[in-house]
Structure formats: structure tokens, C-alpha cells
Amino acid sequence: MPAFTDTTSVLERHLLLQLGDRLKRLRKARDISTVEMAKRVGISRTTLAAVEAGDPAPTMGTYLRVMSVLGVAGDLALLVGDTFQPPLANSAAGSSKRARPQVQVMVSTDPRRHEAQDLQSMALHKEAIRMIHEDPSLLDRAHEVLERWRSQGDSRSESLWSEWETILENRAWRKALGRTRRAQELRQASPLPTVLPDAVRQDVLAQILALKKGVVLGDQE
């Protein structure tokens, strides 16, 4: 399997989600409440929730402080070291005649936890929102799709579609981008992915498919 040295947006999202999940598991395993954890780290519970949701918005410093409190800051040694990079040509390691150790990490989704499907939905939404920012006329298309669905008669998604009217009106995307139950329900009834051009949508699906099979992150030659 070829090693990827560039990450895709879906893969980046997945890595952050996995990091957030891991930090949450570690906190629970140590029996630390969110209130206590936020206090120890010196952040708000909202920021802690964002970290544990793998949100890209919190700073790396915040992630690091959470990791420190949980006793796993040492893992950052992998990042601050040059494990994944070739040594400089004029360094001792660079002039060594011994073969450089190969380090690769396999990243994939857990098929038992619906991870790939959740990630795919999230990625389609992020992409749709990005495109709406670039081309606001796509927002009108989302409105049209929603209107058409609602005109087809009684549907059990009606309450969610009604909420989507408000989300589109206010561009309140965060409501649908979280990992809460409500956000997941909203994504399932969302018109946003339907505004994506087919090629863009297929590209996201291809990234997810690659991740399902397993992507290897490895040394940069």
C-alpha cells in the first residue's frame, strides 16, 4: 500500500475526530468530570467540548494543555521529533550509511462504529458550506430543494426540515456540524449535500472509500 505524505481534508478531519475521541476516553477513564477537567486545563467547558469533539477551532496550545493534564503530552514527541522526515544532509544521521528506519502509521475508520458514514456526511456538509461561501447562489438552490421536499406532503422529517429553513436563513451552520444527536439528525435531513456538483461529491466519496480501506501515512522521501 502506498504511503501518503499529504493528507486530504477528510483524513485531517478524521484524525482530529480520533484525537478528540481519545482525549475524551482518557478523561473518562481517569474519572474526571468535564467541570474538573476544564478547571485543571484553564479553559471553558465549551472549549473542552470542542477539543473532545475534534473541532479544528481550538488552538494547538489548548490541545497540548489538555494532553498534559491527561499525562499524554509526551505523544507530541512524535511531532516535535523528525520521525517522519528524512534527516538533514549535513547531520550525523544524514551521513549514516545505515538504512533509515521506516515509520508508517495506518489510519482507517472503525467499521463497527459507523465512523465512515458519519465522517462522509460531515465532509459533504463542510464542502457544501465552503462552496456556498464562494458562490452564494448555491444557497438559493438549497432553499429550492428544501421547498420541494416540503411540498411533497406529510413527512416525518418535517420538524427537521423546518429547522433547516432557519439554518439556511441565518447560515447557522454550526447547528448541523457538531457531533450531538441533534446535529446528526439535522444532517440526515439536510439539503446541503444536494448542492454539490457531482464531481465534488464523488471526490469526497473516494476519500472516504480510501479511508475505509486504510490510508498509510509515512515517511517523506
Binding site: Q120, A128, T194, Q202, L205
Partner: peptide
Amino acid sequence: DAIDAAIGEGSRFHETYGY
């Protein structure tokens, strides 16, 4: 995967029927 591609989230099928 072919099902996902043709009648999955964001597909024309989804756009037409809402599911």
C-alpha cells in the same frame, strides 16, 4: 459503495425524494 454513489447522501436520488 455503488449504492452510496448512486442513491446516497447528496445524490440526485436524494435531491429528488428527500431520503
